[in-house]
């Protein structure tokens, strides 16, 4: 793997069980540049968790390959925030130190804990939000180069979400950590991410830097049947009365009777998710 790529997949596919089972992930090929904060989005069951588990080295791919940093240099937080219920908060942090000799950064972990957790309380007595804080402390304390987070913010109230997202971004700013975060709620990630990976039905629908994706698309409004659309790839179009709204992938300057607006990330995602797979050329 080249030093400026943090995660790379080639024809990656996974099927749980035998040949008769459907693919959870299929034909995924992408390369995530190092230092990016990548949103992994898609509907429930799109294959987000599978992709993250593959990247974390917890699953063997059925087809293709995935290249990620070795265990020492990546951290992974599963969706259900697994922790040992009979350990205390202090024990759990010590576990991070014991299991990551030479890498563990106590100060970083402490910063995530931020006096919000009593070191003596048992993990099984923590609330969902407190668990999230603890697993994130464990993940960041390891000083990973690649941080894989599966639905990390689901259990948090807005304030804690903002604070922990801020900590994640600060870590990324300070250490150049590459972050992949999954969510089925885009707004949770918008603003924090500069790279997007959209999964649907186990396949990649969109992949690229957010800026490139946004500037590569345009939202057009104009009369139904207006000329000039054929020059571009129409991702999604809807006609209301005599007016047509279309999201296109630009293939050059837009000409014709169109009012052009920049799409938001949400416009982009919804348009792609509405279009059935393979309808795009």
């Amino acid at each position: 793997m080249t030093p400026d790529t943090a995660l790379r997949a080639e024809g990656l596919g996974t099927r749980y069980g035998g040949r008769s089972r459907p693919w959870a992930l299929r034909d995924c090929t992408f390369a995530l540049p190092a230092g990016r904060v990548c949103a992994l989005v898609g509907p429930n069951g799109a294959g987000k968790s599978t992709l993250l588990a593959l990247a974390a080295g917890l699953l063997r791919p059925t087809a293709g390959t995935i290249e990620a940093p070795e265990r020492e240099r990546l951290a992974y937080v599963a969706q259900d925030k697994p922790l040992y219920p009979r350990l205390t908060v202090a024990d759990t942090l010590r576990m991070g130190r014991e299991l990551n000799p030479g890498r563990w950064d106590e100060a970083t972990a402490e910063r995530v804990i931020a006096d919000e957790l009593d070191p003596g309380s048992l993990v099984r007595e923590l609330s969902g939000g407190q668990r999230t804080r603890l697993v994130l402390a464990l993940a960041l304390g390891k000083r990973p180069e690649l941080l894989l987070l599966d639905e990390p913010m689901a259990d948090l109230d807005p304030l804690a979400r903002h604070q922990l997202m801020g900590l994640l971004m600060a870590d990324a700013a300070e250490h150049g950590t590459t972050v992949v975060m999954s969510s089925h709620i885009l707004t949770e990630l918008e603003g924090a991410c500069d790279h997007l990976l959209l999964l649907q039905n186990g396949r990649i629908r969109l992949d690229g830097s957010v800026d490139d994706l946004l500037s590569g698309h345009a939202l057009l409004t104009g009369p139904a049947g207006g000329a000039g659309l054929t020059a571009h790839t129409v991702v999604d179009s809807r006609t209301t009365g005599r007016q047509l709204t279309a999201l296109i992938r630009r293939e050059g300057p837009v000409e014709g009777p169109w009012e052009i607006t920049d799409p938001t990330l949400e416009d982009l995602l919804l348009a792609h998710l509405r279009t059935p797979e393979g309808a795009r050329s």
Partner: peptide
């Protein structure tokens, strides 16, 4: 970014 939670 720590204060605003936006991308660095």
């Amino acid at each position: 970014v720590e204060a605003t939670a936006i991308n660095p």
